Computed example of a mutant assay.
Amino acid sequence: MSISPFFRHLRSAYQSEMEDLTFDSDGRDVLRQRLADKRKEISFLLQMMELCPEMVAVIFHQGFRFQQPAQMDQLLGLEADELPDWGGLAEGIEMTPWASELAQAVLKAPGGEWFLTVAAALEYMAGKPAAAPAMQDDSEESDDAGANEDADHQEDFDADEDGDERASKEAGADWLVEQGFDRKD
């Protein structure tokens, strides 16, 4: 699986947004409450869909069930201007009732179809296990080259995640220094 620079960048930003929403200053898990609050602000969030899709996409956290993972894997290799219409993609995605209700509001806004495609891709990446087993053929003979290619793509995916995590931590440390805090070594 190949991930485009567009989705690599958004994946890192989406993960950071989810981390920010998860715990309060006392370390309590408040994700469910914060997501519920964000979902109530849908009319305001619609204004941010194009500029900061990762900040809005979190409202769909755990709202999608992916029926066609191969289609989603292919989607992750596309750039922002190459994304398919939501109508074609939606056939392979089951939505929870609350997510479907939010999606109806999003679809009424300009750029709503593009945004739902992006939100689905981000949620798919967030739920994708870090290490997927190599796919095997149904035939007696397995395609070793294909299995090796799958493993290489998984290594690329893992390396991208490690690099994104490292860059995110460095950016956070730099920001803290700018705010007057000492750098942690």
Rank of each mutant, 00 (worst) to 15 (best):
F6Y: 02
F7K: 00
F7S: 01
F7C: 00
F7G: 00
R8I: 13
L10C: 06
L10A: 03
R11M: 01
R11I: 01
S12R: 02
A13C: 03
A13K: 06
A13F: 01
Y14G: 03
Q15I: 06
Q15V: 02
S16G: 13
S16M: 13
E17K: 07
M18E: 11
M18T: 09
M18G: 14
E19N: 13
E19S: 12
D20S: 10
D20W: 05
D20A: 13
L21Q: 13
L21W: 05
L21Y: 07
T22K: 12
T22E: 05
F23K: 08
F23G: 09
F23T: 07
D24E: 00
S25Q: 09
S25E: 02
S25I: 08
D26G: 07
G27F: 04
R28T: 12
R28W: 04
R28E: 11
R28C: 08
V30P: 02
L31N: 01
R32W: 09
R32F: 06
Q33Y: 08
R34A: 03
L35H: 08
A36R: 13
K38E: 09
K38F: 08
R39T: 05
K40G: 06
K40W: 03
K40V: 04
K40T: 08
E41K: 14
I42P: 05
I42Q: 06
S43G: 14
M48I: 11
M49A: 14
M49F: 12
E50L: 04
L51M: 09
L51Q: 15
C52H: 09
P53S: 06
P53W: 01
E54A: 11
E54R: 03
M55Q: 08
A57R: 01
A57G: 06
V58P: 04
V58D: 05
I59W: 05
F60I: 11
F60D: 02
